[in-house]
Computed example of a mutant assay.
Amino acid sequence: MKRILITGAAGFLGSHLCDRFIKEGYHVIAMDNLITGDLKNIEHLFKLEQFEYYHHDVTKFVHVPGKLDYILHFASPASPIDYLKIPIQTLKVGALGTHNLLGLAKEKGARVLIASTSEIYGDPLVHPQTEEYYGNVNTIGPRGVYDEAKRFQESITMAYNRFHGVETRIVRIFNTYGPRMRLNDGRVIPAFMGQALRGEDLTVFGDGSQTRSFCYVDDEVEGIYRLLMSDYDLPVNIGNPHEITIRDFAEEIIKLTGTTQKVIYKDLPQDDPMQRQPDISKAKEILGWEPKVGREEGMRKTFEYFKTLSKEDLEKTEHRDFSERNKK
């Protein structure tokens, strides 16, 4: 039985990856310090012999006994509310955490896949974004702690690949959604759905003309799996190229949820990207991958999940108001 270490395993994407590799017959070693993750996402796996969990911060030395075939590094805050609240930890997990896991991969002879992000493109001047685009990032802006952590992460990964011969893979993840997203993480889908479920107006920042491209979690996991198993070691975009404005998306959520709320507008946060759309030509060519789940189907499944959450979960949701943090 092959063994895989998944960091950030109690998070949204990490937990779905745990499910996938259990299904594929792997022994899964899950690691998370729960700074943004939740054990509820993986508690259904604890009874399995081929699953084990370590409560650990990967910015500290990482040791896993026995052989390792693969490592998936998904430990990182991934939403504006999180990385504006814990900026130092965000930088450390991208730098120190990645360094520790690359060292572990070198020691074990394991292949390691690093979770990067479309945020490395910043507020892009090229549309759609290809892997060859270097980005337009404000290094000292409030979002820079996340963007630069991920850019450094890619650099050190390629250094280990070229200098130490470590087998590395880099996935650039675009907006992903689905069950197990946190309502209080500040991202647009859980924020809109949380507001709809609480009977609040939906908050759009700016005039709503900025665009996003949303990929359902099952499609994202399939793309990540195929990339890990491929022989391609340069970054690959994995996301859904179907682009929509935030204003139109808010109207879709109102229609989906059957609410009577209106859309209200607030100032756009600093350095918020105006366009986000992946060019997935490489994923199609190299991995034979493209998304299969349409937004209508994916949003319905996601809303059904959010409707199962408790009233307490809904009430403790943070609002996506970044105005004060953006002034700092």
Results as ranks from 00 to 15, higher is better:
Met1Val: 04
Lys2Gln: 12
Leu5Glu: 04
Ala9Met: 07
Ala10Cys: 14
Gly11Val: 07
Cys18Gly: 08
Glu24Leu: 14
Ile29Cys: 12
Met31Ile: 01
Asp32Tyr: 05
Asp32Asn: 11
Thr36Met: 10
Ile42Val: 13
Phe46Ala: 00
Phe46Lys: 15
Glu49His: 10
Gln50Leu: 02
Tyr54Asn: 11
Asp57Tyr: 12
Val58Leu: 09
Thr59Gln: 08
Lys60Glu: 10
Pro65His: 01
Ile71Tyr: 05
Leu72Trp: 03
Phe74Gln: 14
Phe74Ala: 14
Pro80Cys: 03
Lys85Asn: 10
Ile86Gly: 06
Pro87Asn: 08
Pro87His: 12
Pro87Ile: 00
Pro87Ser: 09
Leu96Gly: 06
Leu104Ser: 07
Ala105Pro: 15
Ala105Thr: 10
Glu107Val: 05
Gly109Tyr: 13
His127Ile: 10
Asn138Leu: 00
Gly141Pro: 00
Pro142Arg: 12
Val145Phe: 10
Lys150Val: 03
Gly194Arg: 13
Glu200Cys: 10
Leu202Trp: 06
Ser209Gly: 13
Thr211Asn: 08
Phe214Asp: 02
Phe214Cys: 12
Tyr225Gly: 13
Tyr225Pro: 15
Ser230Asp: 06
Tyr232Trp: 13
Asp233Gly: 09
Leu234Phe: 08
His242Gly: 05
Lys255Pro: 13
Leu256Glu: 04
Thr257His: 14
Lys262Trp: 01
Ile264Pro: 11
Pro273Gly: 10
Met274Tyr: 06
Pro278Tyr: 05
Glu285Tyr: 14
Val293Ser: 12
Arg300Phe: 00
Lys301His: 04
Lys301Met: 05
Thr302Val: 00
Glu304His: 07
Lys311Gly: 06
Lys311Trp: 01
Lys311Val: 06
Leu314Met: 09
Leu314Lys: 15
Lys316Tyr: 03
Arg325Gln: 12
